[in-house]
Write a protein that binds this DNA or RNA. Structure first.
Lengths: 339, 339
DNA sequence: GAGCAATTTGCAAACGATTACAAATAAGCT
DNA sequence: AGCTTATTTGTAATCGTTTGCAAATTGCTC
């Protein structure tokens, strides 16, 4: 028994109308008379008809699919962002394709290819380090307007983006520590060249300048290992800082872990602050104070922005090309008064 | 300036051959003479032609796209699994669509719809609690063979699956603790009704039986909160266990966190063992002993299995319908000799 | 009932590939 | 050369929709 699926022809035949009418009954019900409409609906019901996406995609030149590009799917930070994206996309009738930049590049593919082929109608890029070739390819084509950045972004590109209030977050972190009376506050940065690293460091330096604190910069990366390494640096400093503001929670974990092993107690001996407020932070020992990024909103806003951008949004009014999602300081037990 | 993309017609015209030849030059180069083949390649080069996927999909009745269904994208456990999946799929020329079961259901969609529409050629289900309707829909259709489970599975379905060696893992955990001399070992389970919960609990009970230990079962769920709750239960037990085997790392985190607050020291007073070995476990304080699941392999194996299943695998020989991925015990500092 | 505008319909041409099938060409053999 | 077989090509149908255009129908007004 072949489960031959019904086509629009079958429906048309059964409802004694043309295929055009069936198509219209579905996409523009108002342009079809009441009588025919119910006839069509009935026929659809009884044949179990479902519109074939491939055919529709070919004819309409769109796929109702969005591509999201990540540096790595393995990083749990992005899982929540993806959730935010999906939560907007699926209800809007769009599918979500995910891929790692690396893999796409290795496969000899690019954004242009996805957009040209109508494999995707738009792209959300979560990778600030995307090969610039990917973007250059789009230059001058109508596809250029179908890309938005989220979380990270490209400094020189005027591509729309959604991002956290990184500088405000850094200021909140510093204010929190400063209010506790800390005068020597170090900052463990993210990896060099990263836009987030730059934004947070800049805000840190500005705060130090404004409050006449001596900046203590420790180069790092967004990893636990960087935190462990930073601990060694901190312990070797001639005058030890009384607080450390880390550019990520992972760094903070590694730092606390290493400092604790070295015999220090957090926050009694030294305060530590993270950035991101990932899942684990709340349950770390001690629970980590951190600047929370709303990852779900980040993803949702990006999806929304993109849909608007490609003319498929729910909101008619044009939104800002750059959306900044607020952050908040979550004070827990890893930060306290200066000794 | 319209960036009108070249079609196969344009290429054919330029190479002075028929579209059939162009198509064949691409999909079956051997069936085309050397001369025409280079002519076609040249024409492709100069026109910048790229095959239109929508058209191909319609004609060939396939999308080269795989759907992965998750309980929630927000759970970082799955991010690594997704990475494993993507690492196989992209090089194989397949795209990866991800969606949450909930969203799909809310959108009034189902697996059948995706497979019928050719939005996806196959499905990887990471959600053991998938509505059974989704599977029932496929019953008797050729689509039934296009689904595989990964990580979790459906007890009653004979759908192929990839899973970790859950029972072996539980035995390894128990052996580890038993070898340390522990005689009273509690087990905090996962959520009721979950297949992983059942497998691990069963192995725990079997071990107790075999070694004449008195089982101490504490109902839980795969969450930090469950661990916190379990700590209260443990502390109220008439005779406190000297070790606790948790069905997930999250549980272990919550448990350790709460036990520590209550004044106990891990592992001196009580040993704790997790399951999964997620990222954070290594950097928790104390570093958590755990049963490691190879999440990347889990995903990769599932993708491989599915590709084989739908006749697009690289390996010709039929593989087992159920793949078991080995686990390993990672002994760190949260487990030690019985007091 | 005629005349005219507004609304509903259907016809048929796309969309851009793949692939039976038949025709043309090349190769092999006596 | 002549015949048979294998290899390359091209022709044209097909996948299942959507949509421009023209035809048919309906509704109004006088």
């Amino acid at each position: 028994m072949t489960t031959k699926t019904a086509t629009i022809q079958d429906v048309a035949r059964r409802a004694r109308v043309s295929t055009a009418t069936v198509s219209r009954a579905l996409s523009a019900p108002d342009s079809v008379s009441e009588r025919k409409r119910v006839a069509v609906m009935e026929a659809i019901e009884s044949t179990g008809y479902r519109v074939n996406r491939a055919a529709r995609n070919l004819r309409t030149q769109r796929s109702n699919t969005i591509l999201t590009l990540l540096p790595t799917l393995g990083n749990p930070f992005f899982s929540k962002v993806l959730k935010g994206i999906e939560n907007i996309l699926t209800p809007a009738g769009q599918s979500l394709i995910v891929a790692e930049t690396q893999q796409i590049q290795a496969a000899g593919d690019g954004l242009l290819s996805y957009l040209n082929d109508r494999r995707a109608d738009g792209v959300i890029v979560l990778d600030g380090a995307i090969p610039k070739q990917f973007l250059d390819d789009l230059e001058g084509t109508p596809h250029a307007a179908k890309v938005v950045f989220a979380c990270e972004w490209h400094e020189r590109a005027e591509t729309p983006s959604v991002r956290s209030a990184n500088k405000a977050g850094a200021r909140m972190a510093m204010t929190h520590l400063h209010d506790f009376g800390h005068q020597r506050i170090a900052h463990v940065t993210g990896p060099a060249g990263n836009v987030l690293t730059d934004a947070r460091r800049e805000a840190y330096l500005a705060f130090c300048e404004a409050h006449e604190l001596q900046p203590i910069l420790i180069e790092g990366s967004f990893s636990v290992e960087a935190g462990v390494a930073a601990a060694a640096t901190v312990l070797n400093l001639p005058t030890r800082p009384s607080a450390v503001f880390c550019a990520s929670d992972e760094i903070a974990f590694g730092l606390i872990s290493a400092l604790t092993k070295a015999g220090l107690t957090v926050p009694t001996d030294i305060s530590v602050l993270g950035f991101d407020d990932i899942e684990m932070s709340e349950h770390f020992l001690p629970p980590l104070s951190s600047v929370r990024q709303d990852r779900i909103s980040l993803g949702a806003e990006a999806a929304q922005l993109l849909l608007n951008q490609i003319g498929r949004g729910t909101q008619s009014k044009e939104r800002d090309r750059h959306v900044v999602v607020p952050v908040s300081l979550i004070a827990r037990d890893s930060s306290g008064p200066a000794p």
